[in-house]
Amino acid sequence: MFRGLFGGKKNGVETSAIPVVRNVTIGRSVRLDPLAWRRLGADAKFKLQTDTLGIVAQGLINLGADGYVHRFYTEDDLMLQVVSPDPEGQQANDFTLFGPWSSAYPPDEAAKRRWGDRLRARTFTDDGLPEYRRFWFGDADERQDPVSLWESVYDDRSATEPRRIYQTCMLFARDLPGEGRELLLAIEMEPQGGDLTHEIMIGIPLNVGEFEA
């Protein structure tokens, strides 16, 4: 999903173009508390076979007045997402872990339109998945426009020219037994100079004490 990124050095000297957020950045490992997903039970679709994430790429999204999204990626396209009101992530207050579910190239314009309709719908499902209800904006309205954004993605801390990826997305969720919640992020993704794809990621919220780097 996010492979093929590139980085560089300025005058041969390693410089940092991206922030370190809660000690997480490219080249470091994040240790997870396995109870974060094991407590969700057998009904959860989110599965993880490791409690350590090796970070190989890092993304930054500027949401304007709504703050910033910091994303940290592994070789297997796992994504640790951190939302913060400040660009350095020092006031981070929202943490999520996502894993890839599916990725597909739409074969034609009709498939793109159908995907757009799915992003706007009150609920979302897919092969092998139960029903998730719209989380962003609530599900009172039958249709809701998705969110569009640009993400700058780096695979080297010294990179100065990140890969830019345009995304149109919507977040859905479902409650699990007890107090658990599982998330579904549906994305239409188009890297600059690349092909458009439709992505589904399944995730879980994390408490700040459930990961460390």
Rank of each mutant, 00 (worst) to 15 (best):
M1T: 01
E75T: 11
T123I: 04
A186G: 04
S158H: 09
D175M: 15
A173T: 03
V30A: 08
G116H: 08
Y68N: 04
G8V: 07
Y154S: 04
G203K: 07
A44H: 02
D86H: 10
Y105C: 00
R164G: 01
D141S: 15
L35P: 01
Q81W: 00
M201F: 12
R181W: 09
P100Y: 11
I61A: 04
N207G: 15
F95T: 12
S152D: 14
A57K: 07
A121K: 10
N62T: 00
R133S: 12
Y132L: 09
A42L: 08
D77A: 11
A173F: 10
F211M: 03
Q90A: 09
I204V: 09
A104G: 07
A140R: 15
L129N: 10
Y68F: 13
E190D: 05
E14R: 08
G27Q: 01
K112A: 13
D156Y: 09
H198I: 04
P34Y: 08
R157P: 09
G41V: 01
K112Q: 12
V20G: 07
T160C: 04
V56F: 02
G89D: 01
L80C: 06
T197N: 06
F135P: 00
S103F: 06
V21I: 06
P19L: 06
A121S: 14
R164T: 03
L32W: 07
M170F: 01
R39P: 02
K10L: 15
C169G: 09
T125L: 09
S102N: 05
T123P: 13
V83M: 11
Y73S: 05
R28H: 09
W136F: 14
V208D: 15
G8W: 11
V20N: 08
G67Y: 00
D77H: 12
G64F: 06
A213H: 06
L5Q: 04
V13A: 14
L97A: 03
L97Q: 14
A36N: 08
S29V: 00
D155R: 01
F72H: 12
M189F: 00
I55W: 03
D43M: 09
W101C: 04
G138N: 05
R118H: 02
A57G: 06
A140H: 15
T96I: 04
V24N: 00
P106N: 11
I204K: 01
G67P: 02
D43S: 14
G209R: 10
I61V: 15
R120I: 02
